[in-house]
Amino acid sequence: MSTMQVEVVSNEQSIYEGEASFVVVPTVNGELGIYPRHEPVMSLVRPGALRLTMPDGKEEVLVAIAGGVLEVRPHKITVLADVAVRSSEMDEARATAAKKAAEESLAKAQTPGSRAKAEIALEAAIAQLKTLDYIKAHKHK
């Protein structure tokens, strides 16, 4: 099976670096499925679940991403995410509480800087909740 190198990096750390046989990225134009040797693409990323199918085809790694940029080259995919969290580090109660706190901060924001911070926190919480919804929907398959 053919594979490609994938690198997912957030502002704070490298989230994933390795091979994958298929990748699904939530872009501003909808979900983009990418196989090895895909045509070059640049796109903005929207909050949601980034899905990486491992070379064995059996395991899927999920990463919640909130905004950023996707670069696709024939043998390498790079996602530079504003915020990225692996599914193993997510918790629904925390994500729901973070969403509520970000919405409250956004409502109270009085400066462009505080508004931008609240918007980023809200996007991160939404991305985690979307990823957790995906996990729930596909758990029983």
Results as ranks from 00 to 15, higher is better:
T96N: 12
A101D: 08
V24K: 10
Q13D: 14
L80N: 04
E59K: 15
I126C: 04
S21C: 13
G30F: 06
L44E: 10
K108E: 11
R86Q: 09
Y134R: 06
T96A: 13
E12A: 14
V24H: 00
G48Y: 05
I77E: 02
M42G: 08
E60W: 10
Q128K: 11
L80E: 03
G48D: 05
A64Q: 02
N29S: 14
E123H: 15
L44I: 12
K99Y: 07
R115Y: 05
M54T: 11
I77K: 01
I15A: 02
E123T: 13
L106E: 05
H75F: 15
A124C: 07
V83G: 00
A127R: 02
Y35D: 10
A107K: 09
R73H: 13
E104A: 12
N29E: 13
A97F: 09
L122R: 04
S14P: 07
A84M: 03
P74F: 08
K76Q: 15
D56P: 03
M42D: 06
L132R: 09
I65M: 03
V72M: 03
R51L: 10
V61A: 12
L106P: 03
T111Y: 06
V9G: 01
L44H: 12
R51T: 05
G57E: 07
E7S: 12
V45R: 02
V45D: 01
V41W: 04
E103P: 02
V28R: 05
G30M: 04
D133C: 09
R86V: 08
R73E: 12
D91R: 11
D133A: 15
A127H: 00
P47H: 06
D82S: 14
I120H: 08
I126E: 09
S105A: 13
V23E: 04
